[in-house]
Design a protein around this nucleic acid. Sequence first.
DNA 1: GGCGCCAACGTAAACGTTTTCATGGCGGCT
DNA 2: AGCCGCCATGAAAACGTTTACGTTGGCGCC
Lengths: 335, 335
Amino acid sequence: MAAATIKDVAREAKVSVASVSRAMNGGSGVTAETSRRIHAAAERLQYIPHAAARMLITRRTNTIGALLPDLYGEFFSELIRGIDLAARARGLHLLVSSSHDGVEEAAAAVRSMQGRVDGLLILSGRVDAAFLRANLPRGLPVVLLNSAVKSPAYHVLNVDNHAGAAAMVRHLLQAGHSSVAFIAGPEGNFDARQRDEGYRAAMAKHAPKAALNIVAGDFSEESGYRAGRELLAQTIRPRAVFAANDMMAVGCLSAFKEAGVRVPQDIALAGFDDIPITRYVTPTLSTVRVRIVDLGRSALEHLAGLLESPESSTASAQTLGCEIVVRESCGASVT
Amino acid sequence: MAAATIKDVAREAKVSVASVSRAMNGGSGVTAETSRRIHAAAERLQYIPHAAARMLITRRTNTIGALLPDLYGEFFSELIRGIDLAARARGLHLLVSSSHDGVEEAAAAVRSMQGRVDGLLILSGRVDAAFLRANLPRGLPVVLLNSAVKSPAYHVLNVDNHAGAAAMVRHLLQAGHSSVAFIAGPEGNFDARQRDEGYRAAMAKHAPKAALNIVAGDFSEESGYRAGRELLAQTIRPRAVFAANDMMAVGCLSAFKEAGVRVPQDIALAGFDDIPITRYVTPTLSTVRVRIVDLGRSALEHLAGLLESPESSTASAQTLGCEIVVRESCGASVT
DNA sequence: GGCGCCAACGTAAACGTTTTCATGGCGGCT
DNA sequence: AGCCGCCATGAAAACGTTTACGTTGGCGCC
């Protein structure tokens, strides 16, 4: 026995398919009595409307697509969680597509989502305005996350990397650490650049006389370790180190431990992201918390708004704040 | 200008829609020359087949749904990653639906996926055979992950908790720790029970004279901490502690550190899961590695197999092996 | 009492594909 | 040379909905 269709329900309830359709959605234009009979029949037959047929005629899928670079680590897990939470609340389905590093793969992913989604959530360091113009079906609502794209044609939602980094640097300086070094992130990365700028801005403002001390990194633990060794080799060691993300801070911590340098007594240390590991290393790591779940949730809600009123708001660039969380490694408690 | 349909392509290439359809899928039944012309026309119009229309007529969505309890922590992130990887490789889309703790929500999720997916991947401690029978549209292929359901009507894929736990216990015993205590997981949990049984089996086999020493836990870090204190309070402290998961091992470690008990010199410690944190605590934590990505991948591939040949293989219960990974906390290197 | 209006309901078209079946042409075989 | 069959192609039905439009009946109002 195949699944029941609307016709079966119509026959069962002795009405036309049109009435069944009306009764199932809202029920306006149909008597309370008939509606009751129809619902009873639907219940009896375990009728569930065929999603594809509905999509075809309605041109709405009630699905949004999420394009992610590579589901690696706690960050994406949290992000998806936020997105999913908000989507569920709005009755939207979530089609995810991750693991495409290359631009080519991303383009293919976008293409294959054509017609399956009402809107797209894109998080990718790789895509730029040109890519979007070339690959995005026009008219498809899109929200970009943590993107460098500034074009007024697209909606973007970013983490306030700049303010977060600046706040942490200021905190380190005010805790009495006269010199603060910075371990930078990968070259092209948008978040990395903003954090870098935040560091510079805070230094310029609160320690104008201090020299900038920036060593290279690429967000990996390994690069943090190397940066740590590099810092230790400097003739005048910095009093504090601020890494552009937590993983590098953790790597740096290993280098310090290995060299017998005590944290925070000899050198203070802080990271960025507030991934769970920060709470388990010794000493616990001070960091800048990013509310990832909220980021995902906001992005979805923004997108959902776009679905309802396509072009009401011109493309906006929103920013999500972050806060510093002080633990042992930055030495604030031992001043 | 709305998106181009198959009719537009047909007109552009001066053929019938049937030929276009044939040319687009496989191209059998159409001359190489015509096919070339059709593809050229499609390219020119940027034609992309309408997914919903195709689903409607084909009755295939090329999408599989993943039902997860709550995307919390590294485990799900990795799992989804494995699923996504395999799905992408097979050209399948992935519809995720997480965050439903209650049975009611899960039922609603299943219902709403009706007709949008060709198969379902379910990971949930809550669902049992009765639930599945009641809520699953018959004929929809399903693969259960880490499920206690034993019914021959369903395909299940489990982690070999029993063997993994037994291997770790044997390792601890053979490393010279005469007594091994166990911190159990939550009551109803399937994985927890299997690990418990693995512990008992290994003890019975390799240390038949030693008494079992089991304290309660619920997989949370907090419960591990309490268990650790409980163990320290025993008149005869165990030489080694095996926690049913890593988070409890980490909590237990905190309790030991707090009490000045050295790991592994005074007491050896091991966990289960190999979550990333194990590598960052001090000392690094020995554990049983579960290849989560592979679990996801295998599950999807099994499901994909079911899609192709619906009932060829009768419902099978497969098991994915795991391996012990020896780090500092179990004291094997200092024997 | 007849006329028109409105609400409830039915009929049928439309959405964009795939697929079955019919048609015609052409080549090979006897 | 004639016939049979195959292959490329086209016409049309089908998938399960929604919705525009038409039809009916009842009721109020003049």
